[in-house]
């Protein structure tokens, strides 16, 4: 099977990025909400460290995924109203933007708070800015709001995919699902 997307289906690389990142997002979001309420202690710092490591991994994957995607063709959509095609396209662009903006806002918050940043105990990353209480508060707001927007967009995006699959019985979902499904 070719790695690239074809006229009828997303290629395996795009699918791997798509579902791999979904799994990581599904893990990091609840961890993010959960960790802020933990009492201060090493346990809390460890969960934060994990959150940040996974978040940085998602940022790296977003870079790789976008680089790969720019060289890809887009499989033709099954017949659907033009507004749906446009909405889907806009959602995809927005999801790409958020896949960068969310981890970057987390990194900014972390920097302004003066916290260390280490990727899985292996590499330390520099702060984007010096400690700054005002910026810290703003970046925290931003991080949280971007996640909220993300959850709404992903919800619509997933609902649309499921609607195409179960209601319209078209190939939208199958063109992205693992396996050989493509568009006829």
């Amino acid at each position: 099977m070719a790695l690239r997307s074809t006229a009828t289906a997303w290629g395996p690389v795009t699918r791997a990025f798509h579902w791999g990142m979904l799994v990581l997002f599904a893990g990091i979001v609840p961890v993010g909400y959960y960790m802020t309420d933990l009492p201060l202690g090493p346990q809390k710092l460890k969960v934060y460290a994990l959150h940040k490591s996974v978040g940085l991994t998602l940022l790296a994957l977003a870079v790789l995924r976008l680089a790969w995607r720019l060289g890809e063709r887009r499989p033709a959509l099954p017949p659907m109203p033009a507004w749906q095609a446009r909405a889907a396209g806009a959602a995809h662009v927005l999801l790409y933007v958020l896949a960068f903006a969310i981890p970057l806002s987390g990194w900014l918050f972390n920097s302004a708070a003066g916290f260390p940043l280490q990727w899985f105990h292996l590499v330390n990353l520099p702060a984007l800015t010096g400690p700054d209480p005002a910026l810290k508060a703003a970046a925290r707001e931003l991080h949280e709001s971007l996640v909220a927007v993300f959850l709404v967009v992903v919800g619509l995006h997933a609902a649309a995919a499921l609607k195409h699959h179960f209601v319209d019985h078209d190939t939208t979902l199958r063109s992205m699902l693992p396996g050989r499904g493509g568009r006829p």
């Binding site: 460290a49 003066g114 260390p116 280490q118 330390n124």
Partner: peptide, 11 residues
């Protein structure tokens, strides 16, 4: 002052 290391980062 003192220099300590938190999560691999000196402060």
């Amino acid at each position: 002052s003192f220099v300590a290391t938190q999560q691999g980062e000196k402060f």
